[in-house]
Design a protein around this nucleic acid. Structure first.
Length: 817
RNA sequence: GCCGGGGUGGCGGAACUGGUAGACGCAGUGGACUCAAAAUCCACCGGUAGCAAUACCGUGCGAGUUCGAUUCUCGCCCUCGGCACCA
């Protein structure tokens, strides 16, 4: 055995071994328990960043640990290869997106291999492969036939200078990122998936996701936003039609003093025809981005349309305002406004001189309503509400609901905040939407025999929008129904489309005749999914939705795709997210070259628990490297002295027993940390502590060396999922024939955990005043007597009377005076 | 603005179910080894007072519950993630 640890050679040898043995190649084996561990696949942006290293290290530790538990473990890897950055790179460097993407994939695949992650590379997929995206095109046409997809107009960010649609992130302070032009809202026709049809199931099934973090489940529930309310009709003065409005607070209905509609609402745009000021206001509202964060934080503005609505109960005429805070996408694009009982309506009414009418009064004395200062938003008792006076808010909800239903002016309705999923993107580098637009037949799905609709890759990309829209050869086709000349759809899918089913495709990535086959039902659902917390809502909700769509199409049997979810925190440098614009990135490659993959993996696992953000530290990496050198040295010194004798537990002296006790308490703790808690940082810390103990244990006797052998074997096995290369080598050097990657996780010897005496903390009035040593089975009486014997305890009791003594078994004693 | 997290020594973090605050590591200080340096090894390492034993203070801020609160409750401050076209 070499005396000095050299990561480079060791890592190359271990990786070659796994490669030759096809260690991580798996197939279906009904006789064994399967375990599917999946990390979110990366966007091939060029090089791995620290977030990837962290994500994939976590997944690899879990994978290797589960292998040691004897399970049939699948861990695949692939590429989320469509997306905006490839187009940006194309504009900047005149390199076609396909070429750029392929080169990035090749480079990053090599980096993943250098890091020693145990993937089954046979299953690798890239979403920009026609062999991959043809199946989502096929699936879309199935959904089309079923009526799950439909087309409607929706607003986008429009850059009037570059004449292109911008992503929200390309809008900076209301201006296009390249042109600097003020962004406009523009309505264009787009394809939607009816995710709202699944809103109830998506909501209810959250309850079954017990392996998910509670915060993610809460965020998804809030995102879906189920509410119960009343949908009612406000009449329109001087018109035959009416205005549909939804409210969750019908108890406040008699306090309505105006109605607000979105600036794009037909009522507002209609009224603008004869109203220059209103037209100017609507135009002004059009000059802003579409993101909800933008709309919610901008100054609340509105203008009276001059139209009036008729209150469904009182018949009173209330003004209709156009307001920039009402979203056309949400509900009917109109809201009733009750300034007395809604803070936003209150501020808007104050600002615009609209009446404030209180109809809800506090039900008890602990509540106060001061409408000179703010709205009273609590529930209470109704007044000034005609026939509903005296009812509580809850009673009024029912009474007003009944009244409206009987009058034919409204109905109880469940509403969702969730909106249907718009999947059209006016981009080049994505999966073409398989639709042909025919003048006489309308939108027609591309027949299965003509799939895939292949994305042309020989293109020049510039800042003025998708090159597809200028490619006659791509666009011009014939209608599959009538055979007349027709035009191909030039929009591509939202890239969330690809990432909504890749997890199932890994099970049968080689199938060229079907989207999924029976192997998907062997591997699905994913047992452990690992990825960034930033995907808590969108990706994870779309993937859950898609899984249900695939189930309903008969492609899968599971209701949910991911049994357990681990949301990893971000990697920070100097307190903020690493990014090129901040210039605070750390390139993993340099660290791999300098220290080796094991050091990088060890540091990322040690610096913080997986769910927390991780603060990068170069000197911390140095520390991780030092630990591996010490581990190497400890094994080297042991091995250099020749083979150890067999362990005979009955012959051990007190010091040897103490070391064995440390080994097995560490083993128990690390098994729990790695297997249940996923706190790899504390698992590593416990091993560091144990190695410190072993370094102080100098015992050349036969049993001393036997204890050391058992201890080093345990440390190597415990660390092997985290630092697989060095432990691969050390395990051989410790005299074992089997590769460490194929070993079983070590078992705790319960007998080694038993101790002759344990230390209890002694408190007086909750403050630590000393410690006592007692036998683990000492009675309460013996413990109390020992406590009272303590000098420092007596001093703090002094002349006071002992009121009670609290004994927490195995931990502490608190004397209350 | 709305939804969800987080805040503990000089730094990253530990304390798992309300029970010893600061494990482990980094940085630092002192020492050993060396001609010297690096590396390595040993010791110390929250603040104040004290030779020490020990005492008091201390987990973002303010209240509360409890024998006991980093942990639970309420209010506030700061910060990070998401907000439907970044992935």
């Amino acid at each position: 055995m070499e005396e000095i640890y050299t990561a480079g050679d060791i890592e190359a040898r271990a990786q070659q071994f796994w490669d030759e043995q096809q260690t991580f190649r798996v197939s279906e084996d009904p006789a064994r328990e399967k375990y599917y561990c999946l990390s979110m696949f990366p966007y091939p942006s060029g090089r791995l960043h620290m977030g990837h290293v962290r994500n994939y290290s976590i997944g690899d530790v879990i994978t290797r640990y589960q292998r040691m538990q004897g399970r049939n473990v699948l861990q695949p890897m692939g590429w989320d290869a469509f997306g905006l950055p490839a187009e940006n790179a194309a504009i900047q460097n005149q390199v076609p997106p396909a070429k750029w993407t392929r080169e990035n994939i090749d480079y990053m695949r090599n980096q993943l291999k250098q890091l020693g992650f145990g993937y089954d590379w046979e299953r690798e997929l890239a979403t920009c492969d026609p062999e991959y995206y043809r199946w989502e095109q096929w699936f879309f046409t199935r959904l089309f036939e079923k009526g799950v997809v439909y087309k409607k107009t929706a607003v986008v960010n429009w850059d009037p200078v570059d004449n292109t649609v911008l992503a929200n992130e390309q809008v900076i302070d209301g201006r296009g990122w390249r042109s600097g032009a003020l962004v406009e809202r523009r309505e264009i026709p787009q394809w939607f998936l009816k995710i709202t049809d699944y809103a109830d199931e998506l909501l209810n099934d959250i309850d079954t996701l017990e392996g998910w973090p509670e915060q993610v489940r809460t965020m998804q529930r809030n995102w879906i936003g189920r509410s119960e309310g009343i949908e009612m009709q406000f009449g329109l003065s001087g018109r035959d039609d009416s205005l549909s409005i939804y409210t969750t607070r019908p108890d406040t209905l008699m306090g309505v003093t105006y109605v607000a509609v979105a600036p794009e609402h037909p009522l507002a745009t209609g009224a603008a025809a004869g109203n220059a000021a209103l037209a100017a206001f609507i135009e002004e509202c059009r000059q802003s981005g579409v993101s909800e964060a933008t709309l919610a934080t901008q100054e609340k503005k509105g203008l009276d349309t001059g139209l009036t609505a008729v209150h469904p109960i009182s018949g009173e005429q209330v003004p209709i305002w156009a307001a920039n805070f009402v979203l056309m996408e949400y509900g009917s694009g109109a809201v009733m406004s009750v300034p007395a009982h809604d803070q936003r309506d209150y501020e808007f009414a104050r600002q615009n001189g609209i009446a404030i009418r209180q109809v809800i009064y506090p039900a008890s004395d602990d509540q106060q309503a001061d409408l000179d200062k703010q709205a009273f938003i609590e529930k209470g008792v109704l007044q000034n509400s005609a026939g509903f006076d005296g009812l509580t808010s809850a009673e009024a909800f029912e009474a007003i609901g009944d009244w409206l239903e009987q009058a034919g002016k409204g109905a109880r309705q469940v509403n969702y905040r969730l909106r249907d999923w718009g999947v059209s993107r006016q981009r080049y580098w994505g999966c073409p939407i398989p639709v042909i637009n025919c003048a006489s037949c309308g939108a027609v799905p591309v027949p299965e025999a003509d799939l895939p609709v292949t994305l042309p890759t020989d293109v020049t990309v510039d800042a003025t929008g998708s090159p597809l829209k200028k490619m006659a050869a791509f666009i011009e086709t014939t209608c599959p129904v009538c055979g007349d000349p027709a035009e191909r759809e030039t929009d591509t899918f939202d890239t969330f489309f690809e990432s909504s089913w890749y997890f199932a495709r890994y099970a049968c990535a080689d199938n060229s005749s079907a989207m999924l086959d029976e192997r998907a039902n062997y591997w699905m659902p994913v047992d452990q999914y690992v990825g960034g917390i930033e995907h808590a809502v969108l990706h994870l909700l779309y993937a859950r939705f898609f899984n249900k769509l695939m189930r309903d199409e008969g492609l899968l049997v599971s209701d949910e795709p991911f049994t357990c979810l681990l949301t990893q925190g971000m990697v920070l440098k100097d307190g903020s997210k690493m990014s090129k614009s901040k210039g605070n990135t750390v390139d993993p490659q340099g660290l791999i070259d300098q220290y080796g993959a094991d050091t990088v993996r060890l540091f990322t696992m040690f610096a913080a628990p997986p769910e927390q953000s991780l603060e990068w530290s170069d000197s911390g990496v140095e520390g991780a490297s030092r630990f591996l050198k010490r581990l190497w040295k400890q094994v080297y010194q042991h091995v250099a002295a020749g083979p150890a004798a067999a362990l005979n537990v009955a012959e051990l002296n007190a010091a040897q027993k103490a070391v064995r006790h440390s080994v097995h308490t560490t083993l128990a703790k690390v098994s729990d940390d790695v297997g249940r808690r996923y706190t790899f940082n504390t698992a590593i810390a416990a091993n560091m502590e144990l190695l410190n103990t072993l370094a102080r244990f100098a015992d050349d006797s036969d049993q001393g060396r036997a204890v050391m052998q058992e201890a080093l074997d345990a440390v190597v096995l415990m660390l092997s999922p985290i630092v697989p290369h060095i432990t691969h080598e050390l395990w051989q050097q410790l005299g074992h024939g089997q590769a460490v990657v194929d070993c079983a996780w070590p078992l705790v010897d319960e007998a080694a955990l038993v101790q002759a005496s344990i230390a209890l903390v002694v408190q007086v009035n909750g403050k630590v005043r000393g410690r006592i040593n007692v036998s683990p089975d000492a009675s309460r009486e013996i413990i109390e007597a020992a406590v009272m014997d303590e000098e420092n305890v007596q001093k703090h009791i002094a002349d006071k009377t002992v009121r009670k003594i609290i004994v927490v078994p195995g931990k502490l004693v608190n004397v209350v005076v």
